[in-house]
């Protein structure tokens, strides 16, 4: 996220969560943009980390978490990389080494009691070097009627995240699906195999570098290429 990687970010600006750079205003990648906005270079910035006080019940939950982590011998700044609050939702970016301890606390602490994990899913940000693959966990607390999100980022070549199946057995199939589609290996999962694609399928389909895989549609006298290869302006 330095200027060398993203020349669009001016000097002196604090570290932004930039996941890529948009070229051109209308998405035309094949030089067909005659609007004059084709030379636009715009960083894609995700919402910035939040600073305390967060407001509402976010502070309560964050305090509980920090206390619990402290009691477990883990300083909060080490486990939690950053906290993002966007549209009334709180996301804890957690380091993968401390994920298991973190979710155990989420489940067990009386003030937190996030009994239900709504599953894992992955997101691939190829533009965010060193943190390409994100695993996103959503938790619901039925007792306190709250939701949080936990996000773990790993680099492409080293996509290993500890499995939380021991704490939340519901993530069994979700982790298999994330492995299937993104190639994130969940360490400690009882049976990490492909679940949606055939067992011998090569590649991980939902990554951004995996093509959509369609075939051109034939009409009389012409073909229309599949959606990822079409000329498009959005």
């Amino acid at each position: 996220m330095t200027d060398a990687h993203h020349p669009a970010v001016p000097q002196g600006v604090e570290e932004l969560d930039i996941i890529g750079v948009r070229h051109g205003a209308f998405g035309a990648a094949d030089g067909g943009d005659t609007s004059g906005f084709g030379g636009l270079v715009d960083p894609i910035v995700m919402p910035a980390p939040a600073i305390r006080p967060f407001g509402g019940w976010f502070d309560e939950v964050s305090d509980e978490l920090e206390l619990a982590l402290q009691a477990g011998g883990l300083p909060a700044t080490e486990a939690i990389e950053k906290v993002v609050i966007y549209k009334d939702e709180i996301t804890y970016h957690v380091r993968r080494e401390h994920l298991l301890a973190f979710v155990t606390m989420l489940r067990d602490e009386p003030g937190l009691r996030f009994e239900m994990c709504l599953g894992v899913n992955g997101v691939h940000y190829p533009g965010e070097t060193g943190r390409e693959l994100h695993a996103v966990y959503h938790f619901l607390s039925i007792t306190h009627n709250r939701r949080v999100r936990v996000e773990v980022s790993v680099a492409d070549g080293d996509a290993v995240i500890p499995s939380i199946v021991a704490v939340y057995p519901t993530c069994d199939w979700h982790e298999r699906e994330t492995w299937d589609f993104f190639g994130i290996v969940f360490d400690g999962h009882p049976a990490l195999t492909r679940i949606m694609m055939p067992d011998d399928w090569p590649g991980h389909p939902q990554r951004k570098d995996y093509p959509l895989g369609g075939i051109p549609v034939e009409f009389k006298g012409g073909t229309i290429p599949p959606a990822d290869q079409r000329r498009s302006y959005n």
Binding site: M197, P205, Y210, L212, G213, G214, I215, V217, A227
Partner: peptide, 12 residues
């Protein structure tokens, strides 16, 4: 013909 799903997962 594969319908609206012109992609890797569906036989066209």
């Amino acid at each position: 013909s594969g319908g609206m799903f012109n992609n890797y997962a569906i036989v066209q």
